[in-house]
Nucleic acid binder design. Structure first.
Length: 377
RNA sequence: GCGGCUAUAGUUUAAUGGCAGAACAUCGGGUUGUGGUCCCGAACGCGAGGGUUCGAUUCCCUCUAGCCGCC
C-alpha cells in the first residue's frame, strides 16, 4: 500500500509510492483542491496536462451540492468531473472550524445549518464515511473536530476526545488491511492544538486503531509558523513512518519543504488556487536566485518569488508565464498578457493564473522528490 | 447671438463661511484540510481672476469651458 523507496540520511524526508484504487502516487505529494468538484477554473484535461497525481474534494460541500442522489446517478465524483486519478476527500471536520458560526458540536456528530438554505443536518462519523463512499474517493478522512486558534485547553481536550471517540466508531471492515486491492484508504486526524500532551495522547490513541495513514490537523489556523513546527517536532515521531503522514492545509513552499524534512508525505493547501484568483503568481527563480528572489528555500536548492501580476512592472514584461512548463498555455502567453487579463477582469486570467500556481506547486513536489532521490534534502 | 444650469481627485460624485468624504481607476501589501474576483494600506482634488469677510471650495462679479433651451 505504501512503499518507502528512499529514506534521507540528512533528515526524516523520504520518498515512496502510495497505492490507491485509482493509481499510484509518488510521495511526497501535494493535492490541488477541488472542494466543490472542480479545481476552480480547470478541467480534468488540464489536471492531466499539469501531471497532477491526486486532487482533494470535500464531504460537507459535496453533500450540499450536488448532493448524494446526483453523485450516485453520476457514478461518483471521478466520472462526474472527468478526473480518473486518485481523489482524497476531507471529512467535513475543517468546516467545524471554518463554519463555526453555523454549527454545533454534539457528542454524536456535528449539527450544521446549511449556509445555502438554512436546512439543518447532522454529520456523524458514520455519515461522513457513507458520503465519501458515494463520492468514491480513494483516500477518506475520519470526521474530526478542528478547534480554532487560540482556544482554551478545555476546548482542545474536547476536540481530541471527540476525534478519538469518532475514530473508534469506524466499522472494523474498513480497517482490515490488505483485503481487496481496490479498497479505499482511511486516514485519521490527530488534534490537540498546541499542547504537547494532547497531541501525544491523540496520536497514541489513533495509532492504536491501525488506520491506513495519519493526518495532523488543526494547524495553520492562526498560530505562528514556529508554533506549528514545534507541534510537528513532537507529533510526527509518534506516527508510524511506514504509513503516510499528512499535514492538512499546509502551506507555503518553504513550509512544505521543512515539513517534508520532518517526515511528512502529503499536503494540501488552497494557497496556489486561491492566490491565483487574486492575481498572486508563483515563479521559480532559476536564473538569478540571488537577485530579486523574495524567498530562498533552505536546503532545497531553489528560490522563488510570489508576486502580484497586476503590479505595474509586469505591464510590458513579455517573457512567457513559464517557458519550461509542461502546460501549453503557460509556454504560450506572456506575463504582460496575463497582467492585462487581470486588469480587464477577463475570466481567462483566473484560469491561466491557476494553471501557473498549480504547476508551480506540482513542480515544487517533483523537485523535492528528486532532491530526496539525490540525497540533498 | 440670447437665456438658463453646471464646474470638487484620472472618472463619477458628497458635504461645508473654519480639518473637503466616498466609489471606481492608479500604486503597493495580504491570503494556509476554500461560504471568498476577497481583505488591508497608500498617493491623488475645490476651472481662472477679482470682490465681500478675521477666514471663501462655499456668498457676489467677470472670464473660460460644458450641458440644455430659444433664435
Amino acid at each position: 500500500m505504501f512503499a518507502i523507496r528512499k529514506q534521507s540520511k540528512r533528515s526524516s524526508a523520504k520518498m515512496g509510492v502510495l497505492k490507491t484504487p485509482h493509481g499510484s502516487i509518488q510521495t511526497p505529494f501535494f493535492c490541488p483542491i477541488a472542494t466543490k468538484g472542480a479545481v476552480k477554473s480547470l478541467t480534468g484535461d488540464d489536471l492531466r496536462q499539469l501531471r497532477a497525481q491526486i486532487i482533494l474534494s470535500n464531504t460537507y460541500h459535496q453533500l450540499l451540492r450536488p448532493g448524494l442522489s446526483v453523485l450516485k446517478k453520476a457514478h461518483g465524483l471521478h466520472k462526474f468531473m472527468d478526473w480518473h486519478g486518485p481523489l482524497l476527500t476531507d471529512s467535513g471536520g475543517f468546516q467545524v472550524f471554518s463554519l463555526a458560526k453555523i454549527r454545533k458540536i454534539l457528542p454524536e456528530g456535528v449539527r450544521f445549518r446549511s449556509h445555502l438554505d438554512g436546512k439543518q443536518f447532522l454529520l456523524t462519523p458514520k455519515k461522513a464515511l457513507e458520503i465519501q463512499e458515494v463520492i468514491g474517493s480513494d483516500i477518506r478522512m475520519i470526521l474530526d473536530v478542528c478547534p480554532p486558534y487560540p482556544c482554551s485547553r478545555k476546548e482542545a481536550e474536547r476536540a481530541v476526545e471527540l476525534t478519538t471517540k469518532w475514530a473508534a466508531q469506524t466499522p472494523p471492515s474498513l480497517l482490515r488491511r490488505g483485503l481487496g486491492g481496490g479498497r479505499a484508504l482511511l486516514f485519521a486526524i490527530v488534534q490537540g492544538s498546541v499542547h504537547k500532551d494532547l497531541r501525544l495522547k491523540s496520536a497514541c490513541e489513533l495509532v492504536n486503531m491501525d488506520f491506513d495513514g495519519y493526518a495532523i490537523g488543526g494547524l495553520a489556523v492562526g498560530e505562528s509558523a514556529s508554533d506549528m513546527f514545534k507541534v510537528l517536532e513532537y507529533t510526527v515521531p509518534e506516527l508510524p513512518a511506514e504509513k503516510p503522514r499528512y499535514l492538512m492545509g499546509v502551506g507555503k513552499p518553504e513550509q512544505i519543504v521543512a515539513a517534508v524534512q520532518r517526515g511528512i508525505d502529503l499536503f494540501d493547501c488552497v494557497i496556489p488556487t486561491r492566490e491565483a484568483r487574486h492575481g498572486r503568481l508563483y515563479f521559480f527563480q532559476d536564473r538569478h536566485p540571488e537577485r530579486g528572489a523574495k524567498r530562498r528555500v533552505e536546503g532545497s536548492g531553489f528560490s522563488y518569488e510570489s508576486a502580484s501580476i497586476t503590479n505595474a512592472r509586469f505591464a510590458k514584461n513579455f517573457s512567457k508565464i513559464n517557458a519550461k512548463s509542461p502546460v501549453r498555455e503557460l509556454k504560450t502567453y506572456s506575463k504582460a498578457y496575463l497582467h492585462h487579463l487581470f486588469k480587464t477582469e477577463e475570466p481567462l486570467a483566473v484560469r491561466l493564473a491557476t494553471l501557473n500556481n498549480v504547476d508551480f506547486y506540482l513542480e515544487l513536489m517533483r523537485r523535492i522528490r528528486s532532491a530526496i532521490r539525490a540525497g540533498t534534502l
